[in-house]
Computed example of a mutant assay.
Amino acid sequence: MKELLFIVNPIAGKGAALNSVPLIESFCKQRHFKYEIVKTQYKGHATALAKDVSSSSYDAVVAVGGDGTVMEVANGLVGSSIPMGILPTGTGNDLSKSLNIPSKIDQALSIIAYGKPKYIDAISYGNGYFFNVASVGFDAEIARDIQKIKRWIPGKAAYYVSVFLKFITYKHKDVVVEIDDTKISTKILLFAVANGTYYGGGMLVNPKGSIDDGYIDAILITPVPRFKFPFLFWKFVSGKYLDLPYVRTYKCKEVKVFSKENLPVNGDGDIITTTPVQFSVSSRAILVLC
């Protein structure tokens, strides 16, 4: 008999995660699964809860929420033999897209019940791990500022409004990046460190990426002329931008980013640290049901 722990972020997806609880209960009862549902109470609580059960008899620990909730639960399970399940009930749900986990709750529950676990990589950044995409520059500043905008504008509309405002005000950043043994001094529009393929609520940032190949995909985008940016934005959204002259890509094991100012670093949708920062890939770091 399966035994499952569901860690629910009650504010994820404007209550969508909380609203999924009756569906979870019904699903488990119909299949005679043992289950427990715990609601998070503060930032970092999901990590603490997952760490507490990392040596228990649970068959899976399920993150019920968005990318932030998934990242917290995954940080608690790194190195554990207990797989993580995902019920994508947040706003962006980018890691679940990278893992081909469906957005419909009943279908995602079926994967938790009957799916097979696979190992995926994690990328360390000093204080923890992220599992999808981290970045410095244009989009990291959007991630920093979007929380204010969400007070007035809900859902994905807040992201696109943030993009527009940042397009008007953004100043390109001077950075030094070390990609394995290659050192580059440059101005950037943004610099992404990718494990998965999607971010920003479905933007295909890393179309050639693999979440379990043991490598980091580093994507360096130098300044794009402001007048061209609106016409090229669709390329960034659809993953068709890799052939642009402003873009360079690298496959590597380690990345360091330095700058004179402490730039925000966006990881899996949250600001996780500031520069300087070092990223290293941890191969086969966590089991995920997908």
Rank of each mutant, 00 (worst) to 15 (best):
M1N: 04
E3H: 12
L5T: 03
L5W: 01
V8L: 04
N9Y: 02
N9F: 10
N9M: 06
P10C: 08
K14F: 08
N19D: 14
N19Q: 15
I24F: 05
Q30H: 10
R31E: 09
R31G: 11
R31C: 09
H32W: 00
F33D: 02
K34G: 12
K34A: 06
K39R: 11
K39Q: 15
K43E: 11
T47D: 07
L49G: 04
L49I: 15
D59K: 04
V61W: 01
G65T: 06
G65S: 06
D67A: 05
G68T: 05
T69I: 10
M71Y: 02
N75Q: 10
L77A: 02
G79Q: 13
S80N: 07
G85P: 12
G85W: 02
N93A: 04
D94M: 07
K97E: 07
K97P: 06
N100T: 05
I101R: 04
P102K: 10
S103D: 08
K104Q: 14
I105W: 15
I105A: 02
D106W: 13
D106P: 00
Q107R: 14
Q107M: 11
I111G: 02
I112E: 11
I112C: 13
I112T: 13
A113E: 13
Y114Q: 14
G115P: 10
P117T: 09
P117Y: 10
P117D: 10
Y119T: 07
Y119R: 08
Y119S: 13
D121C: 07
G126K: 06
Y129M: 07
N132W: 03
A134R: 03
S135D: 14
G137F: 06
D139K: 05
A140S: 10
Q147W: 05
R151C: 09
W152E: 05
A158Q: 01
A158D: 02
A158E: 01
A158Y: 00
L165S: 10
K166S: 07
K166N: 09
F167P: 00
T169E: 13
T169W: 06
Y170E: 04
K171W: 04
K171A: 15
H172G: 03
H172L: 00
D174M: 15
V175S: 04
V175K: 06
I179M: 07
T182I: 14
T182V: 13
I184D: 03
T186K: 12
K187I: 07
L190V: 04
A194S: 15
G196Y: 09
Y198W: 08
Y199N: 06
G200V: 06
G202V: 09
M203G: 02
G209D: 08
G214Q: 05
G214L: 09
I221K: 08
I221C: 12
R226K: 15
F227V: 12
F229W: 12
P230V: 09
F233N: 01
Y241A: 01
L242G: 00
D243Q: 13
V247A: 05
R248I: 02
R248W: 06
K251L: 13
K251I: 14
K251R: 15
C252D: 08
K253W: 09
V255P: 02
K256E: 14
V257Y: 01
S259A: 14
L263M: 08
L263P: 00
V265N: 02
V265Y: 09
D268A: 08
G269Y: 03
G269A: 05
D270M: 12
T274E: 11
Q278N: 12
F279A: 01
S282P: 02
S282H: 13
R284T: 11
L287P: 00
